[in-house]
């Protein structure tokens, strides 16, 4: 596998504010790499620096092994970008918008026509070809925005929070689409502040906060960092305080929370945690409903590393 993007020591300051702070990472060919971080953590700034839209204070960017510059057209021709904000012409139809942006990459008319049709098909806008952006719902507009960025079939695709404010149906469509792009051979850099998305979609995740990388790896590797092994939730009516205290004595219990009828127990790593709990419940003759166990989420990882929630 070769490195598609190499970022070394990227630092970007807006006046005093350091938006990106000595960031280094690589993007390997054929993977979907997620940049996950809360609002303002520097995701868009990172992308815009990589794309040579923003000046940087420090650092080195290589794409396809070559230094990225504003006039590096041989690099740019193989890149597709979907920016965070929708960027389409209100006066052009769905088809025309895609054709316009695709035309910045592909001159041959016939070839372009095929690619545009393919892109429209791909994002599921076939019925809306002649529609103007105003006539599209938020979700469909996002899909158009994506189609405009990928119609020329780039090898490397940047997607900056493409699912913000999108209904679940469109969101699934978009996420499936991105996987399909990867399966067809594209390499993808994806930013989001939705941890579920990062978990579902990304082969590898970089968690950012305040412009710095705080953790990176596959989702399973990251979850190792959460400090907890699993979370068990069960419904119990009227659990007295003394029982709760007793419960805490079971080995490996990190924390318990009891709210309403929901009893939530976090376990540290250890053997047979779940079995120990079940035995204890039987022994204490506590009746319960709907018990289920979860692996820790990336939110738990974030919480563990920064002391704050990824999302409120």
């Amino acid at each position: 596998m070769s490195k598609v993007i190499e970022v070394k020591d990227l630092t970007k300051k807006y006046k005093e504010l350091t938006a990106v702070d000595h960031l280094s990472f690589n993007l390997e060919e054929g993977e979907i790499l997620g940049l996950l971080g809360p609002n303002g953590s520097g995701k868009s700034t990172t992308i815009n620096c990589i794309l040579s839209l923003l000046t940087m204070n420090e650092g080195e960017i290589k794409i396809f092994g070559k230094e990225m510059k504003p006039n590096a057209y041989d690099i740019k021709k193989d890149i597709g970008v979907i920016f965070q904000e929708v960027a389409v012409f209100e006066e052009l139809t769905v088809y025309e918008n895609i054709d316009y942006f695709c035309g910045l990459y592909i001159n041959n008319k016939q070839e372009r026509k095929e690619k545009v049709e393919k892109a429209i098909e791909f994002v599921g806008l076939s019925e809306f070809k002649k529609f103007y952006p105003k006539q599209l719902s938020g979700g469909l507009l996002r899909r158009l925005n994506i189609a405009c960025g990928i119609a020329h079939e780039p090898k490397l695709i940047f997607l900056d929070e493409p699912t913000v404010a999108v209904d679940p149906q469109s969101r699934n469509n978009i996420l499936e689409g991105i996987k399909a792009l990867r399966d067809k051979g594209a390499t993808i850099l994806y930013t989001t502040h939705y941890m579920e998305e990062a978990e579902i979609l990304c082969d590898r995740i970089i968690i950012m906060d305040k412009g710095k990388i705080i953790a990176q790896g596959t989702k399973n590797e990251l979850k190792e960092l959460a400090g907890i092994e699993e979370k068990v939730t069960l419904e119990v009516e009227n659990l007295p305080q003394e029982k709760q205290e007793k419960l805490k004595k079971i080995p490996n219990i990190e924390e318990i929370k009891y709210e309403g009828n929901q009893l939530m127990i976090s376990f540290q790593k250890g053997e047979n945690n779940f079995t120990h709990l079940l035995e204890w419940l039987k022994q204490e003759k506590i009746s319960y409903d709907g018990i289920y166990s979860e692996k820790p989420s990336l939110n738990d990882v974030f919480l563990q590393l920064t002391g704050k929630e990824l999302r409120d």
Binding site: L53, K76, V81, F83, E85, A87, F89, L104, Y105, G149
Partner: peptide, 19 residues
Amino acid sequence: NNLLANMSTKGMRVSVAPV
């Protein structure tokens, strides 16, 4: 405005294209 990256997102799109 439609061509400059610092003025519009459309401009950002144009600016990352090989033109």
